[in-house]
Design a protein around this nucleic acid. Structure first.
Lengths: 199, 199
DNA sequence: GAACTAACGGGACCAGAGACCCGTTAGCCT
DNA sequence: AGGCTAACGGGTCTCTGGTCCCGTTAGTTC
């Protein structure tokens, strides 16, 4: 037996998937992952709840699919020619995303889902891996320019920019203001220059 | 009407609370917050489920109480006399905690709870505020020694040590090994020395 | 454009989480 | 030590999230 949605992926099937993922995002942003209810998602999407249970089955599978969808729409990075400015652009992008009411709540919810389900966690890791890969070149260029020591791990630098912002969002509770983003970028750049991310 | 447990806080009431919080920690570590079930907690604790529903009512309230309890048992920091070594000690402590199967899962679950409930989020923020306050003096001492620039924000430095480790735990999925902790401490120290956390 | 069948949708059904009632146990105070 | 009553605990009821069945709709292929 094949998974539903794989034999006739076009037309209605695709429309249903789009509507359900959209509705799932809304529900997650509004109520958080623990309150995610597939019947409610079906109602919001204007779709039979049987369909949602059959195609996704569990809330975590739905979140995993939503993450796969989000990963496909990764936005391109900007290029400025200086490491600090590139990292600042990245930090502000992350900050804007997390500070946005809908997006911020959605990311919280998705992370909550990943904490209790292996599949969702994998989908989340893939999502961030794609984001990191998108931005890694700006670190590589800085190494090539001689701004950073040879052997600096690009991924570590990019993650170091995001980490304090996510920490604020999830654990610390401090505001996600522009100053925080500037500090995150500045700290990552300074640490990288000092060779903290070189192997 | 008073809250249950406030008029006769000793004896049985205290025993029940301890048993329930212990059981709640176990349940969270094993199944994660979204699967937290008060009846199950009651069963594990060997306590009537009515009691749990009456005293805590919701899963988020139970988590908030658990966090308050965890905050009270904050362990003292070590002192080494050098900023880098203090931060390394902190990083390794955090790493050990998050890498421990039970503790790590518990922290994940607690963070998941905080993503969808304001009270749980506040309790979590309080917990981390206490931890940060415990460790902030080592940064202040480094400033006094002239190791760090005047005006360095101690809390920011401490949080900068934890942030990459939590990012790994929740978002990135990379292993929480000792090298990661060393890098977190080294990066925070380097950034602090460069004045990235000075106002 | 007709047939074949994947995929959807409504509604009945089931199980388990959470609320409630009321009798029992054991802190706390004198 | 005895009484008052806060707090616990078993049993029952309800209501909602999740499953199943079967008829309907609409991609896909020739």
């Amino acid at each position: 037996m094949t998974e539903p949605g794989t034999v006739r992926p076009g037309g209605r099937t695709a429309r249903v998937r789009a509507a359900v993922l959209e509705a799932a995002g809304d529900a997650l942003a509004e109520r958080g992952f623990p309150h995610l209810d597939l019947a409610d998602v079906a109602r919001r999407a204007g779709v039979g709840k049987t369909t949602v249970y059959r195609r996704w089955g569990t809330t975590t599978a739905l979140v995993a699919d939503l993450l796969a969808d989000m990963a496909e729409q990764s936005l391109p990075r900007t290029e400025t020619g200086s490491l600090l400015d590139d990292l600042r652009a990245n930090a502000q992008l992350v900050r804007r995303t997390l500070a946005d009411p809908r997006q911020g709540a959605l990311f919280k919810a998705v992370i909550a889902a990943a904490t209790c389900d292996e599949r969702a966690a994998e989908a989340l890791h893939r999502f961030y891996a794609i984001r990191v890969d998108e931005w890694a070149p700006c670190v590589e260029q800085a190494v090539a320019r001689g701004e950073l020591p040879e052997g600096t791990d690009p991924g570590e630098v990019i993650r170091a920019v995001s980490a304090p912002l996510y920490y604020r969002l999830l654990a610390g509770g401090q505001p996600l203001d522009e100053a925080a983003a500037e500090r995150a970028a500045g700290a990552a750049a300074a640490a990288a220059r000092a060779g903290a991310y070189a192997r």
